[in-house]
């Protein structure tokens, strides 16, 4: 069997071996549902779409995804299994990729379990299902980007709490990279080109574009590059800090 798949299977199983998986999935479903109905005004809007549902995903992910990612490498470090894993005949890339994909698949399961709301909206009205599909894709890609950041930060420490908090902060800054909170800070010293580049890094801008039903190649490339970049950094961090 392919080593990536073997690592993937082990990692995914480990989520379900503890209550973590069930707690996570339940909280995710509960929050995404209540945000949609109470904060998003699902009924009051009188529109058959899932915009209020998806618009809260970035904020849900901000706290929930780092919780999934924090254990990825920090736990391996803490228990010493990182030494076991990396002295088995697999490459660093296979390990990094297998673990990341497992976490991503896990979040994917949670996301897929929100399907009743899709059925509900189809029952209540006649939504544009194409938009809903692209929104799901966008949401899944964004979760992957959050996870890649979390995996990389998790590799820097053996303490899961530190990994969690740092990941939340980094994700928060990236979420809001297109907003004044972040941009004003950079405007004070950086040239306009840099400020524009940073605003282009914003998760929200790219997610909004996809969840409007437009799959722009640039948005896909953006998420793919973000994931690739952070996983690459993940591998480098592990290589550099193996001894700690």
């Amino acid at each position: 069997m392919n080593p990536v798949l073997t690592v993937f299977k082990r990692e995914l199983r480990s989520y379900f071996a503890t209550p973590v998986a069930y707690v996570f999935i339940e909280i995710f479903l509960l929050l995404s549902g209540s945000f949609t109905f109470y904060l998003g005004g699902f009924y009051q809007r009188g529109q058959a779409d899932l915009e209020p549902f998806f618009s809260f995903h970035p904020w849900l992910y901000l706290f929930l995804v780092p919780a999934v990612a924090m254990r990825l490498w920090a736990e391996e470090r803490k228990t010493g299994t990182i030494e076991l894993l990396l002295t088995l005949p697999i490459t660093m890339w296979q390990a990094v990729l297998g673990k990341f994909l497992a976490a991503w698949a896990f979040v994917g399961v949670a996301l897929a379990l929100t399907f009743p709301i899709w059925i509900t909206v189809n029952y209540l009205g006649d939504p544009d299902n194409g938009v809903i599909v692209t929104s799901y894709i966008g949401s899944f890609l964004m979760a992957g980007a959050f996870l890649a950041i979390g995996a990389c930060i998790s590799a820097t420490t053996r303490n899961q709490v530190i990994a969690f908090i740092l990941t939340v902060v980094v994700c928060f800054l990236l979420l809001l990279a297109g907003y004044p909170l972040v941009l004003d800070f950079f405007r004070s010293f950086a040239p306009q080109a840099v400020v524009d580049a940073i605003s282009g890094l914003s998760f929200l801008t790219h997610f909004d574009a996809i969840s409007k039903g437009v799959i722009d190649l640039r948005d896909l490339i953006y998420f793919a590059l973000t994931i690739g970049f952070w996983l690459y950094a993940n591998a480098i961090v592990i290589d550099l800090r193996k001894a700690d």
Binding site: R13, S14, T79, G80, T81, E83, L84
Partner: peptide, 11 residues
């Protein structure tokens, strides 16, 4: 066999 014989505890 690494020092301390680490293994995945939940398995």
């Amino acid at each position: 066999l690494p020092e301390g014989a680490p293994s995945y505890g939940e398995m």
